[in-house]
Nucleic acid binder design. Structure first.
Lengths: 211, 211
DNA sequence: AGTGTACCCGACTATTTATACAGGTATCTA
DNA sequence: TAGATACCTGTATAAATAGTCGGGTACACT
């Protein structure tokens, strides 16, 4: 294995993850040594250095100063976190989305940002029948392929919107469908770009932005 | 202030939270001392002991061995985490929900459990038009009051289900409405208990249970 | 006036913890 | 077969860090 993370390194990563899950803080070398089942903490030093070089953990000098990076979480298949980009509309596509400085967190690990995901605040009611209400936030995973039925975030020209993506073999074939009957379907044009799939909906009252 | 957490203690709690957010691991006494703006680490020791007695932090001997408890997160207004209770059905109310040992995490902080929330896996398709599909998980906040339109988790006798709660001034007045037209509304009976409101939907592929 | 409490200072010590040193074995590859 | 690499052992030492001692101030309450 030339460029990847070895099994043993993954095991250490998992040990660190498990310890943090149970304790809320990172393990010492001694604790890692024990949970990994080796006799010398030099073994841990070696493996940890590999993980550090591989970008899976960050390490600062001092006791218990390990943090798992985004890549590290991916390596052991843990969910990532997303930055809050701005506010979109679930009604008629009217407002453009632009990046804002605001962040949302599902936890205290802002560092677990991945480029492939972002979060948006919802304004409007066109997706209210899809469980997405005004004031909610959505987590969007950028994708290149979509299947009919996906709830997507799309940009039409300069405007962003959230709709259900429908592709079927009868007219109108391919379109964006609001889940609120008071809005109409939106047919695809040259300007319609599907940016990503909505993978999570956070109801407004339950989540707070970090100042 | 007899029984509560003082402002100064909250400030320390916030310092710890901020540090963990930025670093991924807890601060040392020295780092807390500095960020709190005091000259002696004894000041930190005192405040931290108060927080510990107040149940806002857990502390183990050794370096950087502090973890913020659920109560602590609440104290500074951060979102909580929920335990995974079991699997429910979004179809006909057919399967009972019972506690299982499985946990879900939005992060690595299982300790941030709050009694007032729990998480369920969805089985069935009766809420598919509400953006909740088979295999998703939902975050439920237990409540005593509901307003029409809330997506709720209800128990009917021994069975659990997820539906939209509707209360209106025309027949059938109060009922549970599946968002999938192939299922019928469920009228309230003596056995219908609304357990809580669905505050978040996690699409199945994005989140993993901890083994 | 006395007592308790929250918060603070400064210096010292004990302990935890990381890190360095000096190797060994097995596996793969040139 | 020599060299590189991943992983490991065991011991020692340096550094980081927590914890302790002995106070002080201000404020509220009785």
């Amino acid at each position: 294995m030339k460029n990847g993370v070895t099994e043993r390194q993954k095991e250490l990563l998992q040990v660190i993850y498990d310890f943090m899950t149970n304790s809320g803080f990172p393990p010492t070398f001694e604790e890692m040594r024990e949970n990994l089942g080796v006799a010398s903490n030099q073994s841990v030093t070696d493996l940890l250095e590999k993980l550090r070089k591989g970008g899976c953990v960050k390490k600062e000098p001092g006791a218990r100063s390990i943090a798992i990076t985004n890549l590290g979480y991916q390596t052991i298949g843990r969910p990532p976190l997303a930055p809050m980009l701005g506010t979109t509309t679930a009604g008629l596509p009217a407002e453009a989305i632009r990046v804002s400085g605001e962040w949302r967190t599902l936890s205290n690990e802002v560092s677990r940002l991945v480029e492939e995901m972002f979060m948006l605040k919802i304004a409007g009611d066109s997706m209210v029948n899809a469980g997405i209400d005004d004031g909610d936030a959505i987590l969007v995973q950028t994708k290149k392929e979509f299947i009919s039925g996906d709830i997507v975030y799309a940009e039409i020209g300069d405007e962003g919107t959230v709709k259900r993506f429908i592709s079927e073999d009868k007219p109108p074939y391919v379109y964006l469908k609001p889940e609120n009957p008071k809005y109409q379907n939106i047919l695809f044009t040259d300007e319609t770009i599907l940016k990503g799939k909505v993978v999570s909906v956070l109801k407004g009252s339950q989540w707070q932005a970090i100042a």
